[in-house]
Design a binder for these strands. Structure first.
Length: 231
DNA sequence: GCGACAG
DNA sequence: ATCTTGTCGC
């Protein structure tokens, strides 16, 4: 159970930034999982206008990537989208959906940044700290940082830097597509983050866990109302 | 003041 | 993210 008092979501921009600056100290960039036998993917989709949304998570075996578990939850989205504060908009529902999983994963891939963030505390890092579970950020666009050309071949990577420090990697997960931006979230290092993303790709731009979560969430949205069990 | 700007 | 038709390519 997550202590509500330590993780308030109804906050102002200033308070949110303050929380990030405080929680960033809890991040660990050392691998904590001896072995990875399951990898989860998370995603959130919104309804038009943005009153509420649906968060979903799928757990796949690793390295086989067979479906082990999945869950989704529909709820209100109160915080607006502000670059740098995405977690205050999506984390509430993501924490809820995570708690509905029957089989917690060894690591979770999030559709957003890890430490490749203005205050080194993107969505993946925030979720990792809240759940105290290894996490990796895999975004479709960069939020911060500079990088050079990325090889055209699948698997090519180039470092993402900010103020001279390597904060992540830009990865071409597939030939002919735009690269993705990977950065460790919590309890994992950059090299392992990169390898995890590459090993979970199955011919698509996005790693399978995130891709499956995205499809699952979007499917349930079209089905209308939420399921009583959320599963 | 002018860009940049996860989902 | 979401709003949207057709279209190019494997």
């Amino acid at each position: 159970m997550i202590a509500q008092s330590l993780h308030p979501w109804n906050v102002t921009y200033r308070e949110a930034v303050r929380i990030q600056e405080k929680l960033r100290a809890r991040i660990s960039l050392t691998n904590s999982a001896r072995t990875v036998s399951s990898v989860a993917g998370a995603d959130v989709s919104y309804s038009r206008g943005g009153g509420d949304g649906i968060a979903g998570m799928v757990v796949l075996s690793f390295p086989d990537l067979d479906l082990m578990d999945e869950a989704f939850v529909r709820g209100k989205i109160s915080f607006p989208y502000i670059p740098g504060l995405l977690s205050f908009r999506e984390a509430p529902l993501l924490v809820e959906v995570f708690q509905r999983l029957q089989h917690p994963p060894d690591v979770v891939l999030y559709d957003g940044q890890g430490i490749a963030h203005p205050r080194s505390f993107g969505l993946a890092s925030h979720m990792g700290v809240l759940l105290d579970l290894p996490s990796v950020g895999c975004a479709k666009k960069k939020l911060v940082g500079d990088f050079g050309e990325v090889g055209l071949q699948a698997g090519s990577t180039t470092p993402l830097k900010m103020k001279g420090k390597i904060i992540g990697a830009v990865i071409r997960t597939r030939r002919g597509v735009k690269p993705v931006f990977v950065s460790p979230g919590h309890r994992i290092d950059l090299e392992s983050s990169i390898q995890l993303v590459l090993k979970t790709c199955r011919g698509f731009r996005l790693p399978e866990p995130i891709r499956r979560a995205h499809l699952m969430v979007k499917k349930n949205r079209s089905l209308g109302r939420a399921s009583p069990t959320g599963k």
